[in-house]
Lab assay of single mutants.
Amino acid sequence: TGEEYIAVGDSTAQQVGDLTFKKGEILLVIEKKPDGWWIAKDAKGNEGLVPRTYLEPYS
């Protein structure tokens, strides 16, 4: 379980453990880390770190 967020920009994984996503994708945020990198899952079930500045709450 988690909260749904929509990507407001494209982000390409810079290192192992990062999640690549495109603008408009809905991501499920699993954990919000205080350093600004959140753990999220995409629609295909891929999981990784995403920069919170690229996400907005999805409603």
Rank of each mutant, 00 (worst) to 15 (best):
A40Q: 01
Y54T: 07
K41L: 10
L27N: 00
E31S: 11
A13R: 15
D10H: 06
G36R: 03
E56I: 14
W37Y: 11
Y58G: 04
E47P: 04
Q15P: 05
L19D: 00
G45V: 01
S59H: 12
W37F: 12
L55H: 01
Q14N: 12
D35N: 12
I6L: 07
K44Y: 14
P51V: 07
T20A: 11
V8P: 03
A40K: 01
K41V: 13
I39P: 00
E3M: 11
L19A: 01
I6R: 09
A7Q: 01
G17A: 06
D42Y: 02
V50E: 01
V50A: 06
K22D: 03
L27H: 00
K33L: 11
Q14I: 13
L55M: 06
D10R: 03
G2N: 08
K32V: 04
I39R: 12
K44R: 13
I39E: 02
E3P: 05
D18Y: 15
P51G: 07
V16H: 11
G9S: 15
P34A: 13
W37M: 13
T53R: 12
L28A: 04
L28H: 07
T12C: 14
E47M: 14
A7H: 02
D18E: 15
A40P: 00
G36I: 03
L49M: 10
G36Y: 04
T1I: 13
K33Q: 08
K32I: 05
Q14C: 14
W37E: 05
L55W: 01
E25P: 01
E4S: 12
P57M: 06
L28P: 00
A43Q: 10
T20Y: 08
G48N: 01
Y5V: 02
G24T: 02
T1K: 13
Y54C: 14
F21D: 00
A43W: 09
K41Q: 10
P34I: 09
K44V: 08
Y58R: 07
I30P: 00
Q14T: 13
G17F: 06
F21G: 00
W38H: 02
E47Q: 13
I26C: 06
L49P: 06
F21Q: 00
G24I: 02
F21T: 01
I6T: 04
L27S: 00
L49T: 10
P57C: 06
E3T: 09
I30K: 05
G24W: 05
I26D: 00
L27F: 06
R52P: 14
G45C: 05
G48K: 02
P57L: 09
G24S: 03
G36H: 04
K32S: 03
F21W: 04
I6E: 03
G36P: 03
K22M: 08
A7E: 01
L49R: 15
P57S: 06
Y54W: 09
G9W: 15
L28F: 12
R52T: 07
Y54P: 02
N46V: 08
N46L: 07
E47W: 12
G45H: 03
E31V: 12
P34S: 13
Q15R: 15
S59K: 12
D42E: 01
I39Y: 12
E25D: 15
P57K: 11
G2F: 14
W37I: 11
Y58H: 08
G2T: 08
T12A: 11
E31G: 08
D35A: 04
L19R: 01
T53H: 14
V29E: 00
A43L: 10
D10W: 05
D35L: 04
G24N: 05
G24F: 04
T12P: 13
I30W: 03
E31H: 12
A43T: 10
D42R: 02
S11T: 07
L19M: 05
V8G: 04
G9T: 15
V50D: 02
V50Q: 00
K33S: 11
D42Q: 02
E47K: 11
A7P: 01
F21M: 03
D42F: 02
G36Q: 04
V50G: 01
W38L: 04
T20P: 09
D10C: 08
K41F: 07
A7R: 01
I26H: 05
F21C: 02
Y54M: 15
E3V: 09
G2Y: 14
E47Y: 14
P57D: 04
D18N: 14
L49F: 12
L19P: 01
G9L: 15
V50N: 01
S59M: 12
P34L: 10
E56Q: 11
E56V: 13
E25A: 10
E47L: 14
V8D: 02
W37G: 05
T20L: 08
E25F: 05
K32Q: 06
S11R: 15
D18K: 15
G17V: 05
L49K: 13
D18W: 15
D35G: 14
G45K: 02
E31P: 00
G17P: 05
V29P: 00
E3C: 14
D35P: 02
K44N: 13
L28R: 09
G24Y: 04
K33Y: 09
A7N: 01
G48C: 04
P34T: 11
I6K: 06
A13L: 08
K44F: 14
K32D: 01
